[in-house]
Design a protein around this nucleic acid. Structure first.
Lengths: 263, 263
DNA sequence: TCTATTTCCGTACGTTGTACGAGAATAGAG
DNA sequence: CTCTATTCTCGTACAACGTACGGAAATAGA
């Protein structure tokens, strides 16, 4: 549905001509007490099993349904029941493709990350290249407004995420930073973009509800009127011009990236 | 329990000597279709009602119980049942003090924000003052690791949050920015700190589980070995020294703040 | 004492994620 | 072809959640 370019299944299909072999049971980590799923199992899980009933669905189809649902109605609309309904499967069938809901969220994140252009575009000016990386991330998050929230929990990067990380690392090559530092910069940049977009979206959403805005303004005015908040009173008295979100983003991004050179 | 300095109840207790009058039913916004609660009602709600059964608990006690629970077992341990249990109340009694769980979360956030020192400390060097603001926020978030996650949903600032905002606005006074720009800077800064601390905490938590780290390393190595991720391979080959989290925070913070001057 | 008001909370409902296990489909072995 | 091992499908069931409802209990003013 969406123009994705998945990089699933590490190139180990030996002679298999059949499609849709990325649907496979992922067993939980039986290891030493850690929650979650073995990333190896998840992302480059076995595509071998040639016995048993043939899968009626695919991990991709399920992920796409979940993404469509989140795009249309937000992350809280993504329940196992509604995803199953959309896919035409029984609820419990989903668990043959993802061991739990959290994993399904990881699949969603990596799926939409497939929309990010991964190759090309390196000018050699690492600041410009990094700006481009951030802008691509922002556009992706605006297209999938649930993404900032879904990113906020710790995850292991999937193939598409890793492909984009590769691009970011390439952009950072001229800086001569060591590995950990490059990763740190990328994480920081992603976090910054996610935070900014989340703020942007919340702002836009609140603005759509005038009564809420009015109530909040009344409340702030009442607080400012008690004399103990002179600065707040000043802000309310001279709010200034409302800015274009894109320009604000670019401004803060420039500041962050310009600052990166000093180390 | 925690050394908080609440600024509850806007100064409208007329001659009342009795304490604990901030426990009051907060009705939902009957207005034009917006979800949530009228901030006015919530934060400076009526302390008048002198009829009816006396409250057996207090909003403060309930909030403190919820905070203690979140500190000890994380945000997902904060359920209405467990909070009630801790407070010694029936579950439904909580709803006399907060109209719903989301509001309880707001109360929690504002409650711990009371730990932030609000007065003083202004050197006049706005960069230094802003750095101090950020450091205070980080320390608060490290003390209450659930805070970054709780902040991620849109909220109306409570009295304690507002008091700290006042401090930040005072720090920004020398910049001569207009009101909206100051607020934007504060939001951006808070978002940055929250993102960074969340990352820090996730890092630290993962590091405690060696099998997980090993599994992830194995996975990344396998991905890097396919030849299509040369930069990732380079990073894994030359990871560099692990850094002190505090120093990393300070470095990124400096970069962000130094960049703020250019506009 | 009566009545209005407010709080307390047991019960109950709808929704969630998911454990369990019976049945259906398939591939290879005999 | 039949048998068996394997894999997927999904109805049922359960515990935990947020919270609506409404009766009982407590209190203040009439």
């Amino acid at each position: 549905m969406t123009p994705t370019a998945d990089v699933d299944k590490g190139g180990n299909d030996e002679g298999g001509s059949d499609e849709e072999r990325n649907a496979r049971t992922v067993t939980r980590d039986g290891g030493s007490g850690a929650t979650g799923v073995d990333p190896q199992q998840l992302w480059l899980g076995p595509a071998q099993p040639r016995r048993g009933r043939r899968p009626a669905f695919s991990r991709e189809a399920i992920t796409e349904a979940a993404v469509a649902l989140a795009d249309a109605e937000g992350l809280e609309a993504v329940t196992m029941r509604r995803v199953a309904e959309r896919v035409g499967a029984g609820v419990m069938s989903l668990y043959s493709y993802a061991p739990d809901k959290e994993t399904l969220l990881e699949l969603m994140v990596d799926h939409v990350s497939g929309e990010l252009p991964t190759a090309s575009g390196l000018t050699g000016d690492w600041r410009a290249d990094l700006r481009e990386v951030a802008h691509l991330q922002r556009e992706l998050m605006l297209r999938h407004p649930w993404l900032p929230a879904a990113l906020s929990t710790r995850r292991v990067p999937g193939p598409n995420t890793l492909a984009f990380l590769e691009r970011a690392l390439a952009a950072l090559r001229p800086t001569g930073l060591d590995g950990a530092a490059k990763l740190e910069v990328f994480a920081q940049l992603t976090g910054f973009v996610a935070g900014h977009v989340a703020h942007e979206l919340a702002q836009a959403s609140v603005a759509r509800s005038p009564s809420r805005v009015a109530a909040e303004a009344r409340y702030l005015a009442a607080m400012a009127a008690d004399g103990r908040h002179p600065e707040l009173a000043g802000v309310l008295a001279a709010p200034g011009r409302a800015q274009d979100p894109e320009a604000t983003f670019a401004r803060f991004l420039n500041r962050l990236i310009d600052g990166l050179g000093s180390d």
